[in-house]
Amino acid sequence: MDLKKAFQVSHKRETVNIQTKESNEWAERFKAEREFDGRKSRTIETDMARLGVFLSFSELIGKQPDEMEVPEFVKFFNYLKNERNLAKSSIKRYYNLLKVFYRSLRLTNFNTFSEESVQRNRFQDGEMKPYDPILEEDLNQIMGEIIDSRSRTKIRDALIIRLLWDSGARLSEVLNLRFKDCDLKSGNFRVTDTKTKRERMIICSQGTLELLNSYLHIINRVVSEDSHIFQSMGLEDDKMVNRSHLSRVMKRHVTDMKNKKLISPEKRIVVHSLRHGRCFDLLEKGVPIEQVKELLGHSDIHTTLRYAHAFKRTKDNLENIRKLL
């Protein structure tokens, strides 16, 4: 089989040990609040890792979280910048975490620092270009690069990308699929781990379905109802593929293609661009926006419009109308 032709389509988390009994109590209180709020375990795990950094700093300066004031918070964020060498985007995540931490535990001593930060634009993002949607031409080039690579995971990675493109699903939704969720005869997949906490069905094309049936039993060491359909190739059986792996794969091949001038250097293409591209593609083909919204699992139709880069479509439509005037 010509694999290149067949696949064509028509973050390292750091943990910090918390030493003191008081810090452990703060961490447990916050974790209990997050669990009660219904946050996903992965979100809580990330929150706790960052909170560990903050609590370790509070131990270092000899202050409990409810004793810290503006000067201590300024020292903490300078510590993140100067001692830990974190990027602005990472520092902002700590700021957002502390807002949630202090609000969840009903403490008010972070409020003054937060209000000053808003007034002084400390944690404001610069204007960020939105992700560009991947269109079929670019996707086929990316698929070709992946299949031509020497990576031992290239078939699995290409299958994931094909399913992401067909379904418009989120990366986490596809990586969490298990064999019991999949009807590999019809090409229907039941997504349970969703952002909106509502189950939904996603689908794939006949071509993708044939590829899945040809390769899933070859690339996976464990094939059972409860095992993931996409598994890590490490030492552990049935370990889910790490989300960051696909991000690195996409970034590497997109960068190579930009260097070869196969993709415009101005394009901002990431894994999530597949979801944007599917939305844009379906709307351009005349699929009603309500149906696209349900396929993507959006709770708000305005999100669907934003994903579709409606501003671009509106601009094109206005230019077409201008020609008729």
Rank of each mutant, 00 (worst) to 15 (best):
A169Y: 00
Q141T: 11
S172V: 09
L175Y: 03
S114R: 14
L164N: 04
K239M: 14
F123M: 13
E115G: 00
V174S: 00
S232G: 08
R198I: 06
E236W: 02
D193Y: 07
H217Y: 07
T192R: 14
I202S: 00
R162F: 00
N220S: 02
C182K: 13
L212F: 06
Q141G: 07
Q124S: 10
K197E: 12
Q119N: 13
G234S: 09
K154H: 09
S172H: 09
R122D: 07
L246R: 08
G126F: 12
T153D: 14
S224A: 12
L164Y: 06
L177S: 01
D181M: 10
E116Q: 13
S117R: 09
I202R: 02
Q141K: 15
K251Q: 14
G168C: 08
S149D: 08
L184K: 05
I134Y: 15
D183R: 08
I155M: 04
I146N: 14
Q206I: 10
F123I: 15
L163V: 09
V241F: 03
E127I: 08
S151F: 09
E236R: 14
G144R: 03
S117Y: 10
L212V: 03
I160K: 05
S205Q: 15
R248G: 04
E115I: 10
N109G: 03
L135D: 15
T112D: 14
C182S: 09
R156W: 10
C182M: 10
I160R: 03
S247R: 15
T208P: 12
R200N: 11
I219D: 05
T196F: 13
R152G: 03
K251V: 06
V249F: 07
E225C: 01
Q206T: 06
S232Y: 05
V241W: 05
I155A: 02
R156G: 10
G187M: 09
R170D: 11
I202V: 15
L163S: 02
G168F: 06
V222R: 12
V191G: 07
L171V: 12
E136P: 07
L216P: 07
R162Q: 13
S172L: 09
K197V: 03
D226P: 00
D132I: 03
E127V: 11
L135Q: 13
F110M: 14
D226G: 11
L164A: 08
D132F: 01
L159H: 04
D138F: 00
E236V: 05
V191M: 09
M233F: 12
H217L: 10
E210L: 12
V191D: 10
S244Q: 14
T153C: 06
K185V: 05
L184V: 06
